[in-house]
Amino acid sequence: MSAVDDPTDLTLGSEGSDASVAEAKGDEQIADLSSDAGDDRIDETIDGYNFAYLDENTKRMIRRAILKAVAIPGYQTPFASREMPMPYGWGTGGVQVTAACLTPGDTLKVIDQGADDTTNAVSIRQFFEKTARVDTTTRTEDATVIQTRHRIPEKALTEDQIIVYQVPIPEPLRYLEPRETETRKMHALEEYGLMHVKLYEDISRHGHIATTYAYPVMVEDRYVTDPSPIPKFDNPKLSNSPALQLFGAGREQRIYAIPPYTKVKSLDFEDYPFDPGQWPQACALCGAEDSYLDEIITDDAGGRMFVCSDTDFCSRRRAEQDAAATSEEGEQ
């Protein structure tokens, strides 16, 4: 209980004394000494952090919230989100949920926009490599925990997997009603008329529901829920998934869940049924006709091509095609 037991306190002390020692010396020396001392300390402390960064009290608090979230599918459970060493809005909710779930034996995959090597996915993966020392992978089927932003992998998930979504605005009614006090009542009373009105207005104005991502869903016939900004193309994968789906919103301090084998219905109307959309073209790299595509602008003249957004899915298909081609060549 005493401050002396705390290693961080000792480093604080040494920081102070470095600075005062430095003051006594010549200007240039001071500068270098002091800056070295400061930088070293930051590096050293990385090892001093708890497994998966968060302290045990915080993880217990998050774990309790996760269990309540799983017990009440689609309901946004408040939790005392902590400040993380990455900015709010950059996946702090997902990171906290992942940190609370990870065990040393896990294999983690992190994707952003479907890709394993987008900068923020790289940054989050490195964070867990450093703080939890877990194995990481890009192969969807090898992962036990997948943290994602904006996509669900093309390869079907399994019972042995947890997928953690990063969520910017967990409240599906937020853009219709900015007040938390109001939206909380709407959920309590199961009063979702506002959402239906909005979707219907879209149809009357544009002939379409103009929501193309973060398309609201009804979870187990009770809570209207935001699936995070995944394209509506991915919505069908939410329903009846064998994997546990957890959603973390750090800045907004909410965790929610879709348990395995849970009914998830994208909101629609009888005369305007939900349409996940499809692509007129196949992936220009692997030829897949059933995956979500990124549009790539290839030249100044507006040339473009469409390729899979799920980089693992696409590269593995191409590798298989190459292998097949090589073996065919060998046989000839």
Binding site: G89, N120, H150, H208, Y213, P231, R251, L293
Partner: peptide
């Protein structure tokens, strides 16, 4: 301001996927 700046600046992150879905809708309309 830490919450605000994080969320504000997160729009610098890739949004290819959501933008693509809007692009597709606008072209179709």
């Amino acid at each position: 301001n830490i919450q605000a700046t994080g969320f504000l600046e997160h729009i610098k992150l890739p949004h290819y996927v959501d933008f693509q879905s809007e692009l597709e809708l606008v072209r179709r309309m």
